[in-house]
Nucleic acid binder design. Structure first.
Length: 825
RNA sequence: GCCGCUGUGGUGAAAUUGGUAUACACGCCAGACUUAAAAUCUUGUGGUAGCAAUACCGUGUGGGUUCGAUUCCCGCCAGCGGCACCA
């Protein structure tokens, strides 16, 4: 069978039958929404890693369709992003054009790989008809007070005079020019995702994400319970008169012998104006990344602020230090230091000779030597108000005392931070905001959306790091929507998460989106009407398709993308523009594995280890690649590309075709044996597909094909159906040869008949002291009959030899599984 | 640094979730076909000892729980992934 002929024939057939994979908004069939993360259409094209996750998802979608579900399996393009912009700068081409070409390349590859996407629902985040709604969502966030402007740090290259992505910073240096990267703060749009921290934890209970994804989300949000405590500063000449800290251990308040604030803390900034030494320290720490700063083993440096604060519990004056091991992004940016019970505080105290007071007892412990951070040992000491209590009781008492005296209160802190939403780049959605001298920041009126990204010539940022859009005067200049006076547009664009936050919703009404959501637009109604038609709590499409039943994606998106999109979903749901019976956007999350390059490294253009599907499909065909990818290892696994076992899959498909032709000639009838075999195979493979166990599904097919000589025509047709999700071309061809009607992909999935799976004989392994010594044949019916069992054992010479002269102390019978005899003597 | 994952033949990997360890494939050995090679087909293939039946050892490593551990618990060793402006 020549794969080139077969592929061409069936690709043509599918093109001529476009309805095959259409998701039907109006069908009565039960729906399944199967989603795989849409790709960023990069210039290097689709590689075998993409092919791996798409193939697995495609198999599942085809399987569900054959089981009779109305399946939506869509695809689109996460088209905005930095690499395209960088490429545009280098090649002096328009990102729009480059993106269009890349999408065409990806789509061509996907079609060739026979993915059963419903192309009528294709979406593209860089299409104005799409990002109009991305902008609309931002405006809703702003209107609800969830988007605000704040000074936030970015990576800044002083030589290129541009902001850098973390990825562009290599060992603290600029990837392009090698200059030292600095941290610089600029005013940016920030979204208050922290307001949803608890809801994002609670919502997980309504999902069936795999465990590690749930854990990843919870850890990322990083909720910790504790208290806020306010310390008064004794120097009254400053603007700031008190320092607020967050601590999980208010019980150790008596042990707080000094305080440390982050270099970005307001107080530090104020002090740096009058103190040269502090100013220098702040400049130093600006160069370090957060990861460097938080490292536990690194020596901690700091500078004394010259100030003292008052520990409210005992009115003692304690020094205030500035050090960059305290992060401004976590808690309040200031800590109370308890050196006796925290390693970092201890190291800092030793270095600067600050006093250490133990407040929890521990035997054989020299508190001058080492900190003791165990929370559950010992009792409180040196702590008059809660002396002798266990730490957990002391925490309650401490919070009570703080609240009573209005010095502090119970509080939670989260590792999760608000979401920096501004990018100083061109290739993204313009943030739809307008600044007026008089009225401040105003949202663009909804009827003016989308704010189109203007086509420009130069994509570099400005000298002072502003988005290239700021150079386009007729883009920037606009009218204030309130006073109609002169105003200026925001020139920053959105991060690329913005478009992917709601694409799973966009697929549902993709057909309406194509013409700007206006096909139901009625000019007699008010202008907001159009928005209600797309996002609406009575939307027919959303009601039908949401939530996503299975969402397949990579581990690298298990925290950010998943959290951001769940947040946006919860937000939209709360403002009433989604059908409200849907608690979460995704019901199940499956995380797919990674295919590394042959060198065991992540595939990337710069490493030159990218393997494209064409290297296999040009020589062996699409079906071989698809099956081989699935056979390489488990769907969640990490595996390096190697073509060693590829020949096995090729041989398998060749042999399968050859044997089918032989069997057709022989024209055997079904036999008892063939029925047992095929029903076992149906059961096994259905179970494997359902659980994304594609590698074992391939193995089971191979096993069955090794016994294909037994099979009659009916079983052969079933075999082809079982194969069809993995090898769609070969299966269509064989289905036709077997006289199957229409497309095999529209046939009904076979169901196993239990009556062929119950055997009358069973092989029961007999173990002696846990080691299997014999396998005996037994009648299934009487397998739990003790007398029958013992007589079977006695008739085995081998077992009797083991049991000779020994006493059976215990018998453990696991019904149907094994019998273990424990012997003595 | 923080969070998480993985470790089974020469290789990719299975093991119904505590019940016959190594399914399925690659590779390799031997044989058939062929003038020959390729392709294809047949047989064997964890280690040690033995002609063999068989026995002992064996899932990174050291302990533990259990009638029974690749699977559960504790310690160690090695490798990998993610970490907020890559997507």
């Amino acid at each position: 069978m020549d794969f080139k002929v077969v592929e061409a024939k069936w690709q043509k057939f599918w093109e001529e039958h476009p309805g095959l994979y259409r998701a039907d908004d109006d069908s009565d069939k039960e729906k399944k929404y199967i989603l795989v993360e849409f790709p960023y259409p990069s210039g290097s094209g689709l590689h075998v890693g993409h092919a791996f996750s798409f193939t697995g998802s495609d198999i599942y979608a085809r399987f569900k369709r054959m089981q009779g579900y109305d399946v939506m399996f869509p695809m689109g393009w996460d088209a905005f992003g930095l690499p395209t912009e960088n490429y545009a700068i280098k090649s002096k081409r328009k990102p729009q054009e480059v993106t269009k070409e890349n999408i065409e390349m990806f789509k061509g590859q996907m079609k060739r790989l026979a993915y059963s996407f419903d192309w009528e629902r294709e979406v593209n985040t860089s299409d104005p008809n799409y990002y109009k709604w991305t902008q609309w969502i931002f405006i809703q966030l702003f209107k609800k007070g969830l988007a605000y402007k704040k000074e936030m740090p970015i990576n800044w290259c002083p030589s290129c005079k541009t902001g850098l992505a973390n990825e562009e910073v290599v060992n603290g240096k600029c990837e392009r020019c090698g200059a030292e990267v600095e941290r610089r703060t600029i005013s940016q749009w920030v979204v208050k995702i922290t307001e949803y921290a608890d809801k994002l934890i609670e919502g997980l209970e309504k999902t069936e994400f795999i465990d590690k994804v749930k854990r990843a989300q919870i850890n990322w949000i990083g909720k910790s319970e504790g208290a806020k405590i306010r310390f008064q500063i004794s120097d009254s000449q400053l603007k700031i008169k008190e320092l607020e800290v967050f601590t999980t251990r208010p019980d150790t308040l008596y042990g707080a012998t000094f305080m440390v604030i982050a270099p970005e803390h307001e107080l530090a900034l104020e002090l740096s104006k009058r103190d040269e030494k502090i100013k220098n320290y702040l400049n130093e720490s600006r160069k370090k990344s957060e990861m460097e700063r938080a490292e536990l083993n690194k020596e901690k440096n700091g500078v004394f602020s010259g100030l003292y604060a008052i520990n409210p519990i005992n009115n003692k004056e304690i020094p205030v230090w500035i050090s960059d091991f305290v992060l401004s992004s976590y808690g309040t940016g200031a800590i109370m230091s308890v050196p006796a019970h925290d390693e970092r505080d201890h190291a800092f105290a030793k270095k600067y000779k600050l006093s250490i007071i133990p407040v929890i007892s521990k035997e054989n412990w020299n508190f001058e030597e080492k900190a003791c951070s165990e929370a559950n040992s010992g009792v409180m000491i040196n702590s008059p108000k809660w002396e002798g209590l266990k730490p957990e009781e002391a925490i309650k008492k401490a919070i009570g005392w703080l609240t009573e005296n209005k010095i502090g209160e119970k509080s939670n802190s989260y590792h999760l931070r608000d979401w920096i939403f501004s990018r100083q780049h061109y290739w993204g959605e313009p943030i739809p905001m307008i600044y007026c001298q008089k009225d401040g920041w105003q949202a663009v009126p909804e009827e003016d959306l989308p704010i189109q990204l203007p086509e420009i010539e130069v994509y570099e940022p400005t000298e002072d790091g502003k988005s290239p859009l700021s150079k386009i005067e007729n883009f920037v200049r606009c009218k204030c929507p309130i006073c109609e006076g002169e105003a200026r547009r925001e020139t920053d664009t959105m991060p690329n998460w913005a478009g992917s936050d709601w694409y799973y919703l966009a697929y549902c009404f993709a057909k309406k989106l194509k013409n700007g959501g206006q096909d139901n637009f009625n000019s007699d109604l008010d202008s907001n009407r159009v928005f209600v038609d797309i996002f609406s709590n009575s939307s027919k499409e959303l009601k039908k398709w949401c939530p996503v039943d299975v969402y397949v994606g990579g581990d690298e998106h298990n925290t950010l993308h998943l959290l951001y999109s769940r947040f946006i979903y919860q937000f939209l749901s709360e403002i009433g523009v989604l059908p409200n019976e849907l608690p979460e956007p995704y019901y199940k999350r499956i995380s797919h594995g990674v295919i590394l390059g042959p060198d065991n490294q992540r595939m990337s253009k710069s490493k030159g280890n990218v393997i494209v599907p064409e290297t296999v499909i040009d020589i062996y065909g699409v079906d071989v690649l698809r099956m081989y990818l699935m056979f390489m290892g488990p769907f969640e696994g990490v595996m390096a590309w190697n073509e060693k076992t590829l020949m096995g899959v090729k041989r398998f498909l060749d042999r399968f075709s050859l044997l089918i032709d032989n069997q057709i000639k022989l024209g055997l009838d079904s036999s008892e044996k063939s029925k047992v075999l095929i029903n076992k195979t149906i059961q096994g493979i259905s179970r494997d597909y359902e659980s994304f166990g594609f590698n074992t599904a391939v193995a089971k097919l191979m096993e069955a094909v090794n016994r294909l000589d037994l099979m009659g025509k009916e079983e052969l047709k079933v075999m082809v159906q079982l194969l069809s999700p993995m090898a769609p071309h070969t299966a269509e061809e064989l289905w036709q040869r077997l006289g199957g009607k229409g497309s095999v992909h529209q046939s009904s999935w076979p169901i196993h008949d239990k009556k062929y799976l119950n055997k009358d004989k069973i092989s029961l392994p007999i173990a002696i002291n846990g080691k299997v010594r014999e396998v005996i044949e037994l009648d299934t019916e009487r397998v739990n009959d003790k007398e029958y069992l013992m007589s079977a054992i006695e008739s085995s010479e081998k077992l009797m030899k083991w049991l000779e002269g020994k006493e059976i102390v215990k018998e453990i019978l696991v019904p149907g599984k094994m019998l273990n005899l424990v012997i003595k003597g």
